[in-house]
Amino acid sequence: MSTANDMAEMPVQLPRSPANGAEARSRYFNSGNAFNIKLPPVPGQIFTDEPARAMAMEKTGFINCDQSDKMQCAFPATTPLMLARYAVVKAGERLDTTLVNTASIWYVIRGRAGLVVGDEKAVLGKGDVFLLPGGVTSAITADEDSVFWAVGNDPQLKFDTSVPATGKDAAVEFVHYPAGEISYQLDVVYGSNANANTSGHALIFSAEKTQAARNITPTMTLSLNTLKPRSEQPPHKHNSAAITLVVAGDPAYSMVAEQKCDWSPWATLVTPPAAKHSHHNDGNSRAEFLIVQDGGFYYHARTMGFEFY
């Protein structure tokens, strides 16, 4: 009596007698063993040492919020598809910001600097947001000691070993959102009432090329969320991962999968995909936090899965 092998226990099958290199490169799995890969979960995490190092202003360079070891990822990553980093530029020094990604979203934490992106230039100040296209030569030169926070989709391109398109085929262009305009636009939002279907008062950033999708890049979203004094955003979830920068809020905290994450100045919070989470402002002033998500993927695939508990 023969005993059939369990499909789930079978190893990868190789071609029997390949006639050439193309056939020799083929591999075969089955319905039992193709979908039983167990990947480590995306850790919920609040990064506090990295912003402290950045604010110490010791030297010009990048400080990554890297969880690649916990996710068994072969390249730096904060979530599987996004990398958050702090950037320090000492007064009078220059930082090359030419990155291999589709785009990176930047926030000026402190300082004043000049930015060159291809043939375009901008003057940056505290509270500015800007969008850098990947693969385009760019650099920051600081007039005074400056600190930045940035999130890019570097891991996405590393994962499928692709390179950013540039020129007229680029997915994004350089966009500058000055702090004064951000403040004005947020006041416009606060001039309207939030209803039961909205998650509070938030400013959503978009751009000319991505206006139809209401995202800032094809795959990433950016919002400046707020909490009024003594208020909270109720528990909710979504299928996209979220990376959050604490801009203002004292005392304030987040609950991520039943874990309390106390806010501290310029900390970076990671909310794993589909994790239950909420945000709480126990202070007497408005809390503000920037949130980058890889939500563009899920909106496009019709799988965002946002819901309140």
Rank of each mutant, 00 (worst) to 15 (best):
C65N: 14
K59M: 07
A34T: 08
A52M: 01
D49C: 00
N64W: 06
S31P: 00
F47Q: 05
M10L: 15
A54V: 05
D69S: 12
E23Q: 15
P76K: 05
I46K: 03
M71I: 03
F29A: 11
Q45I: 01
D49V: 12
T60W: 04
R25G: 02
P43I: 13
A34R: 09
E9W: 01
K59H: 11
D49Y: 04
S31H: 11
P41G: 04
P41H: 01
G61Q: 11
Q45T: 09
N33V: 04
S31T: 09
P18I: 06
S26I: 03
E50L: 05
S31V: 06
M55I: 02
S17W: 06
M71G: 05
Y28D: 01
R27G: 02
C73I: 14
R25W: 02
K70V: 07
K70T: 03
R25T: 09
L14P: 00
E9L: 13
N64F: 15
G21D: 04
P80L: 15
M57H: 02
T78L: 06
K70S: 13
T78C: 09
T79R: 08
Q72P: 01
K70H: 07
A77H: 00
R27E: 01
A52W: 00
C73H: 08
G44V: 00
S31N: 14
P18H: 01
A22C: 03
C73M: 15
R27T: 09
M10H: 04
N64I: 08
N20C: 09
V42N: 01
I37D: 08
S17N: 14
P18Q: 02
E50N: 06
A54C: 07
A8L: 03
T48H: 04
P51L: 15
I63R: 05
G21Y: 07
G61V: 06
Q45Y: 13
